[in-house]
Computed example of a mutant assay.
Amino acid sequence: MSVRKRYKDDGSFVWEYCLTISKSPRKQYRKSGFRTKNEAVKAEQEAITKFRTGYSLLAETITFQELAEMFLKKCESKSKAVQRNYKNSMYNHLQYFHKMRLNKITSLIVENWIKECKKTASTIAECVKFAKAVFNYGIKHDLIIKNPFLRVEKPKVVNKERKRLTVQEALKMLQLCKERYPDFYALLATQIFTGVREGELLAIKWSDFDFTNGKLKIQRQYTSGELKESLKTSSSYRTIDIFPTLVKILKNHKKQQPLLSEFVFINSVGNLHNPRNLIQRRFEPLLEEMFGDRKYMRFYDLRGTYVDILLAAGLPLKYIQSQVGHSNFLTTMNAYSRLIKDVNEHAVDVLEKTVSIL
């Protein structure tokens, strides 16, 4: 703690005080502009009182943009997709907060911003998620003591109903694909008959298959142009049972593969596929021909078709959970509740026919 004169270029001076908030790492808080020493001493004592009661003095000097950029630097080890989403929220949607001091951002200000914000509910939700993480980072490093984004009311995101192919539609698409785009046939069949995630699909190697026992190990992913030997969660590492029909398709695909590669699905020059190109040049034209709408469904929604196939076969939900790689049972229930409801309704019809003979 110290009070001293601070000289200006013209030789005049003002009084300032400096508080050492932390010795390791060293953090200081300075404030100047006082006309007399007594004013500086009084302000210093008020600052000490605030600090001792848990008030963060640094929150008066750091802006949201400064803290957010510190947080973004710390996130450089995260995936490119995560970094891209964070930067999109920061630089395209949260400019309102950039120059604001952290101590001036309150939950009321945040809620008013949400109320006046002319952005979609999902965009606002992403912004709040990012800002919440930024403030949590500040709390962790003793720069602030409260997170104004923690309990704000966000607009409700209405999830669109996911579309899926019926088993008959899936078989029709595969036949159409075989005729129109034979180079895409094995990849599409693998997606429909294993329900793997897009990144997992593109990273499959021939060594991951055990054709004799009908098994496929999922143990890596290809996302945002990066091959990663790690997956989302521990439950994502799994062994999937594959159908004899798929084994036959894949063996034939291997024979016809023009270039030798350890990876199952490669483009014409031997590299891993760009998923956007695959979807735009192969999957969407198939949707256009079948449904008259290139955006009828997402490629990811084929996971639902796979679940549909397993449910139709009467397989238990716990088994389905392990096959699709969900970390807990509720995730499977929530993600595919509509499919489960359809199967349950069918089960009621079967039961009714059974007991009607009594």
Rank of each mutant, 00 (worst) to 15 (best):
R294I: 12
F64G: 05
S122F: 04
G314N: 10
Q256L: 14
G54T: 13
M90K: 01
M100I: 09
V247E: 13
F211E: 11
N88S: 15
Q83L: 14
R180G: 01
E76T: 15
R162A: 12
E44S: 12
M1Q: 07
F283Y: 06
A313S: 14
E169P: 08
L57C: 06
E226G: 03
M90Y: 08
N85G: 11
T123M: 11
A313Y: 01
Y222K: 01
T36Q: 06
A133R: 06
R303S: 05
Y29M: 05
P275M: 02
V264L: 05
N267A: 02
S235I: 11
E126G: 02
D210G: 05
V196T: 14
R276I: 13
R101G: 04
G292C: 12
N252M: 07
S224D: 15
N328P: 12
E76G: 06
V3Y: 00
T239R: 02
K154G: 01
Q83R: 10
K73H: 10
A131Q: 02
Y137T: 11
Q28W: 00
F265W: 01
Y222R: 03
T233S: 14
N267D: 15
I357P: 01
K146E: 13
I139F: 00
L231P: 11
Y306W: 01
E226K: 10
Q257K: 08
P285V: 13
R281P: 05
F209W: 06
N112D: 15
N267G: 04
A189R: 02
M1P: 13
I109H: 03
T239G: 07
L108V: 14
T120N: 03
